[in-house]
Simulated assay, not measured.
Amino acid sequence: MRRTIAVTIAAAVVVCGAIVARADGLEADRAEAAAELIALAERTDAAAGRTAYLEGAVERAQDDTADRAAILEVRPAFVAEITALSAALEGAEGKVDTAAHRASALSAQQTVLAERDDPATVTAATATVHALTEKVGEQVVGWQAAQSAGPGGPAWVSSGPDGYARVRAALDQVGGGGVGLYESSSCAGGTAPACANSGGYIKYRADLANWSTGRLQWAMAHELAHIYQFRVWGALNSSAAYRSSFGGDPEFLANCMAVVRGYPGDVGCDADQQAWASGIWVGAVR
């Protein structure tokens, strides 16, 4: 009886051990399966993230392609306008001052080259260049009209076409493109070599055409300064600063204005006087 019980107990112990071992095995399997599930979930999330990124990248690329296509569509019109402006500037060479127009065109060109997204920016730059071309054309027409005759008759009498052309070139060089010019001996009864009229034109005595290039350019810058003075004449003569700094003398002021343009004469101007005189070139009286 005792042996039977002992055998039974031993068998039970063996069975329990097997059960425990089996349970441990199942727990290990469960843990391994859970780990694999977690790893799979992580891989799935990573794949989903990559998919979303790729979808976004494709969408961005498609948008970029559409933007580039829109830019390319409007660029030819800009190129055509730049070509037209280049021709206009070439035709204006030696006739009118085109430095400001060239700078504006260069700025527009740089804007277009840098633009990648907005075709409206290119369209606006195209309109700017077109306006510049029209402006240059208008100035050349004005210059050509000024060549034919002055208010009182022919553009020259004694200085001849070559002398006139030389004075004209000097005036254009200092920024007076389009300003009327003709030969006359009426400036201060013939005692002054040149003078400016409040009507917006300049007269010169015939011998002025024989002056040196530097002196001739200074003379034209000086007379052009008077043209700009006439444009603000009322405000100028009401300015206390004008009276205190220049003694109310338009000739002294014209000399300083010429200095500002880079054409100094015999009369010097200090830095404060030059700074004040520079305002008259842009219509500002302080």
Rank of each mutant, 00 (worst) to 15 (best):
S184I: 02
V79K: 13
F230D: 07
Q139N: 12
A196D: 03
E27D: 14
V79E: 15
L208E: 02
D249K: 06
S184C: 05
D249R: 04
T4Q: 14
Q62L: 15
V96Q: 02
I82A: 15
G176P: 02
N197I: 14
S245R: 15
K135P: 09
F78C: 06
A34E: 13
P264D: 09
T65E: 13
A146N: 11
E59N: 09
D97E: 01
A219K: 00
W156Q: 01
T8N: 09
E73L: 03
S104H: 08
T213A: 14
G25L: 04
A149P: 12
T191R: 01
T8Y: 12
G199T: 12
R75E: 12
A254K: 11
M220L: 10
L208G: 00
G160N: 00
A11W: 10
W218G: 10
R166E: 01
V79I: 14
A165W: 01
N210Y: 04
S212E: 11
A87V: 08
V136F: 06
R286W: 11
A209E: 00
A206E: 05
L224N: 12
A21I: 14
Q110Y: 13
N237G: 08
A165G: 02
G265C: 14
R75W: 09
W156G: 01
A170Q: 05
V7W: 07
A66K: 11
S185T: 08
G17P: 11
G265D: 08
I5S: 06
D24V: 07
E32C: 09
P76Y: 13
D29C: 05
G214R: 14
G160Q: 00
S158E: 12
S148I: 13
S86Y: 03
D97M: 02
V141H: 09
G199K: 11
A69V: 09
E223M: 10
C187E: 05
Q110D: 15
N237Q: 09
A192D: 07
A80Y: 08
M220N: 03
A114P: 00
R75S: 11
R168V: 00
E73H: 05
Y204N: 00
L37F: 05
R215S: 05
P151G: 13
V285A: 07
S184A: 06
D118W: 01
A275W: 04
A70Q: 04
Q274W: 09
R286S: 07
E36H: 06
G262T: 01
H226M: 14
A169T: 01
C195M: 01
R166H: 01
A10F: 06
F230L: 03
R68Y: 08
D117I: 10
A258S: 09
A92N: 10
A192L: 05
A165N: 01
E55D: 14
G199F: 11
